[in-house]
Design a protein around this nucleic acid. Structure first.
Lengths: 185, 185
DNA sequence: CTGATCATGTAATTCGTTACATGATTCC
DNA sequence: GGAATCATGTAACGAATTACATGATCAG
């Protein structure tokens, strides 16, 4: 039985201290979401499946007013997580970017229209960069209080990544703007 | 009826001169694949659907030794493509990156193991950058012979993109390597 | 004649999102 | 009491990959 990558998101979040499906989803939404998203529709069934596989153990505490089910990693789960973290396979990588796709086919557009699409794409990446920057305090706290540096490192990569794409758009806008102006003059 | 993004890949490739499903797939594999992939399992059914919608017209020529079906854009198809290219919605963007995901959870690994994972991730992005560079002559030819500049622009973005990620890994490897050496000394 | 490439398609499966259903608790 | 949030789950759907099936043509 091979686990999907999303299973490791769950195992990883449990290792970071999340206990319920709800908490996992909450953490994902302020961290891995930007390079690996997950929805309730995946998380709850996958938790059940991981329990059947013996990688997590779930317990419903009757004393708990919220009728939540708290999970924790089993030794086997911890092992599976570590095995994945150190496995030698080239990591899966997949991008779907509608903005770049449009750009690819944009030779029939006039420069002004192309610039407009670039602006739209840049706005989106700037928005994402902002969203990430708003998370920074949380990541900094985690690094300082718990000594967990990786989430912050990855967050910083995320910000640079969004800025890289926004910056490329910006440069391209200037280039096309100059070309358009030259033609117009 | 709203079209999926992959429908626009097909419309766009037909606009660029591809005629059959096979040719579309071939072009996708040396161009958009890196930011929007498509398989036969999508292309052929989608071509049929686009024909029913009147956006493409397909013809099977009996004189053709290969029993292929040649498609072309209808005016409605050209319009749909142009409407999408100029639409004001923020472009869809989705990334699934296992390497970054691993990194996020890597606080339990020792520096040497972390560096090893970074090397793996960097190797992958360097490989992709190379793959893209091998396509460049094709894109340059298209720009010079047909005046289509967008594919080349996008290819250059693709190369810079892969190099950006490889470069980040490289920097991080050095950082962790230095930290590990300091600890070891 | 044989392997590579051209060529079209379908079926099964996997992965993931969205929407829905339900209800408790906490804060104001 | 009412809104926000906590909390768990399922069902329907959609998007995409993979594997399979089939066969023609072309280059050596």
């Amino acid at each position: 039985v091979t686990l999907g990558k999303t299973a490791y998101v769950i195992l990883g979040m449990l290792a970071l201290g999340a206990r319920t499906g709800y908490e996992i989803k909450g953490l994902v939404d302020v961290s891995t979401r930007f390079f690996w998203a997950a929805s309730y529709g995946q998380i709850y069934p996958e938790l059940k499946r991981l329990e059947e596989l013996g990688l997590v153990r779930g317990e419903r505490d009757d004393a708990d007013a919220r009728r939540r089910k708290c999970y924790e990693l089993t030794p086997a789960g911890r092992e599976a997580l570590h095995a994945w973290l150190t496995s030698g396979e080239p990591p899966q990588f997949e991008l779907r970017h509608e903005g770049i796709l449009k750009l690819f086919f944009s030779d029939t557009l006039d420069p002004a229209e192309q610039v407009e699409q670039l602006r739209l794409m840049r706005a989106e990446h700037e928005r994402l960069a902002d969203e990430l920057r708003r998370i920074e305090p949380r990541a900094r706290a985690m690094a300082e209080e718990q000594g967990r540096r990786c989430p912050r490192r990855v967050l910083e990569l995320g910000i640079e990544y969004q800025e890289f794409l926004a910056g490329w758009c910006s440069r391209m806008e200037r280039q096309l703007g100059a070309a358009g102006a030259a033609r117009g003059a």
